[in-house]
């Protein structure tokens, strides 16, 4: 296999042609996007160069603490993104979500990098950080969908939940339907991805490996591991987070605390 062709700064700047085309479209059709496109371009350069330097440093690091530190920072960033999407004020769901994510994604990343890929040591940053990044990124979206759906359904179907409570149901029985619907809603995208992979789209990681000169037959194996990891991690983290959050939606008298907005 050939190694990857380097992109020189001059060649990199040539890619700005695409931005020029976008700016032209904005100018001709008065889309008023020129400012956002300009800021976006600068940010893309700045953020990715910064990330490049950070990754170069981390990938050459032999400190397990640094690698785990980066992992914790990644999970912390994910929790802020979830917080932004869910926007819930009545139930304190962030701490249980954070702890579950931290534990379940850590176990997943260790399992994939140390056991399936068999890197040595298990925290070898070249494998551990990308595995962690993918599981956090994908599962985070699933969690945000599940949590948001659960709160929304419990609010909308409050009377139905209370009707069941009043007929002797425990809080788990009364909210079983909403629980199932929420976990399913979060899991469906990663299951659908398994259906379409290789037919409808070539996943980013695999494309990256092929561009970097890897044998496609090796790249697909990595991709299969990633797809399976995502489904498993999403299921485990969604169910665990929802179990913890559900209890917090009900008070000491097993009464539903969420009120309609």
């Amino acid at each position: 296999m050939t190694s990857i062709i380097d992109i020189s700064i001059g060649q990199l700047l040539l890619a700005l042609v695409f931005i020029l085309l976008a700016q032209l479209s904005s100018f001709i059709f008065q889309l008023s996007l020129h400012r956002d496109i300009a800021i976006g371009t600068v940010r893309t350069f700045a953020q990715l160069f910064l990330m490049g330097y950070v990754l170069t440093y981390i990938l050459h690091s032999d400190s397990v603490f640094l690698v785990i530190g980066v992992f914790v920072v990644m999970v912390s960033s994910a929790i802020f993104i979830i917080k932004g999407r869910v926007n819930e004020k009545q139930v304190a769901y962030l701490l249980p979500t954070f702890i579950t994510m931290l534990l379940s994604y850590f176990v997943t990343a260790v399992f994939v990098s140390g056991l399936i890929i068999g890197s040595s040591p298990w925290w070898e940053p070249r494998y551990f950080i990308p595995a962690g990044g993918m599981v956090i990124g994908n599962s985070m979206s699933a969690l945000a969908i599940s949590i948001e759906r659960f709160f929304k359904d419990l609010r909308q179907e409050r009377e139905l939940v209370e009707m069941k409570l009043c007929l002797g149901a425990g809080y788990r029985e009364a909210s079983a339907e909403q629980f199932r619907a929420a976990v399913k809603a979060g899991m469906i995208p990663s299951i659908n991805a398994m259906m379409g992979v290789g037919l409808v789209f070539i996943p980013g990681m695999m494309s990256g490996q092929i561009l970097a000169g890897a044998d496609p037959m090796i790249a697909i194996r990595y991709q299969i591991v990633v797809m399976l990891m995502l489904v498993g991690a999403t299921a485990v983290s969604s169910v665990s987070v929802m179990l913890l959050i559900r209890r917090r939606c009900f008070g000491s008298g097993e009464e539903l605390l969420l009120t309609k907005e």
């Binding site: 209370e162 409570l165 009043c166 002797g168």
Partner: peptide, 22 residues
């Protein structure tokens, strides 16, 4: 508060203003 909530709610029948069916 000393009675388990499901037990209490089985002994006390509450019918809401708007009936809910599954």
């Amino acid at each position: 508060t000393a009675i388990s909530p499901p037990k209490l709610r089985s002994a006390i029948g509450y019918v809401a203003q708007i009936p809910r069916m599954t």
